[in-house]
C-alpha cells in the first residue's frame, strides 16, 4: 500500500467520524478493511497512576474504587482465597511496600493500608516470560492482557513480583452476580489483571477506580507530559514505588 492511498483512507476515516483519529488498513479474504480509533480517545505515551496514601487512609474501610472496578469488569467473587480474582485491592503498608515502612513513620501512612493493582511496569517481567505474547506492553505503557491467546501456563503470575495477576481456577460465572453487559466476562483457565481501563480510555473516560474515588486519592495521567496532573503531584510531593530495587520501573506511585 503506498503512502498516498494510506493518507486518503485516513482522511476518509476522519471524515466519517468528524474528528481526527488513527487509521489502519488490513485485508480480510482479499478485501481491504479500514480501522480507526474513537475521536474522543485519551492518548498518552506512558500512562501512570499516583495514589495519595494519606487521603486514601482518611477513609477507613472505604472500598469505592474496588467496587467500581469489580462491577465494571465483571470480576467474580469467590470465598476461597485460593480462587480469588483481584484487579485492585488493599494491602497493609508493609506487605505492599516492604522495607519502606520505617522511613516514613512520621507521616503515619505506613500504619494504614495501601491500594495495590498492576504496576504497568516499564520493564514488565510478566511480558518477558509469556510464551505466546498473550500479555504485552502497548505503546502507551499499558501492560495488556489478551485473554483470547492466553494458554493458562501461569508463568506470568510466577514472574510478577507484585502478586498482581489472577488466574481463573474455575468458571468465573460461578462467582458473578449482576453482570455489566458492556464488558465481557472470562472463561476458566486464563489469566487476568488490571489493564488501566484501556477500554474506557479508548472512549475518552478515566479509569473506573479513579472516577469512583470522591476524595481524589487516585490520579491518572501521562508521565511523559510535563504538564500532566501526575507529573505535578510527583514534582510537589515525595513518592515511592513498589520494589524499585528489581528494576521493573512501576507506573504506580505512592505519595507518602
Amino acid at each position: 500500500m503506498d503512502e498516498d492511498r494510506r493518507k486518503f483512507l485516513k482522511l476518509a476515516g476522519v471524515a466519517a467520524l468528524g474528528i481526527g483519529s488513527a487509521s489502519l488498513v488490513k485485508t480480510v479474504n482479499g478485501k481491504e478493511r479500514r480501522s480507526g480509533k474513537f475521536p474522543q480517545a485519551l492518548e498518552g505515551k506512558r500512562w501512570a497512576m499516583v495514589i495519595d496514601l494519606a487521603k486514601c487512609q482518611e477513609h477507613e474501610g472505604c472500598t469505592l474504587c474496588m467496587n467500581a472496578c469489580n462491577q465494571v469488569h465483571n470480576i467474580p467473587h469467590f470465598d476461597d482465597p485460593r480462587h480469588e480474582i483481584k484487579w485492585i485491592w488493599k494491602e497493609p503498608f508493609e506487605n505492599a511496600l516492604p522495607n519502606q515502612e520505617e522511613d516514613f513513620l512520621e507521616q503515619g501512612v505506613s500504619k494504614g493500608p495501601a491500594v495495590v493493582l498492576c504496576n504497568h511496569c516499564e520493564r514488565p517481567p510478566c511480558v518477558r516470560v509469556c510464551p505466546t505474547q498473550a500479555t504485552f506492553k502497548r505503546e502507551d505503557g499499558i501492560v495488556m492482557m489478551d485473554m483470547h491467546r492466553c494458554i493458562g501456563c501461569r508463568y506470568c503470575i510466577v514472574a510478577c513480583p507484585y502478586g498482581s495477576r489472577s488466574f481463573n481456577w474455575q468458571d468465573p460465572h460461578l462467582g458473578l452476580g449482576d453482570i455489566n453487559p458492556g464488558y465481557p466476562t472470562r472463561m476458566r483457565g486464563v489469566v487476568e489483571k488490571c489493564i488501566f481501563c484501556e477500554e474506557r480510555l479508548a472512549k475518552g473516560k478515566l479509569p473506573a477506580c479513579v472516577e469512583a474515588c470522591p476524595y481524589g486519592a487516585l490520579t491518572f495521567g501521562d508521565l511523559d507530559d510535563p504538564g500532566s496532573k501526575v507529573r505535578k503531584l510527583l514534582k510537589s510531593r515525595y513518592a515511592v514505588r513498589r520494589k524499585v530495587e528489581l528494576g521493573t520501573r512501576p507506573g504506580v506511585f505512592y505519595l507518602v
Binding site: 476515516g13 471524515a15 466519517a16 467520524l17 502497548r138
Partner: peptide, 21 residues
Amino acid sequence: LWRDEVVRQDLRVHFSPDGRA
C-alpha cells in the same frame, strides 16, 4: 480481525466501504 485489532492494537472503529463507522 476485530478481536485482534481491539485487544492488541487498540483500534476499535470499523469503517465500512461506504464510510460508515
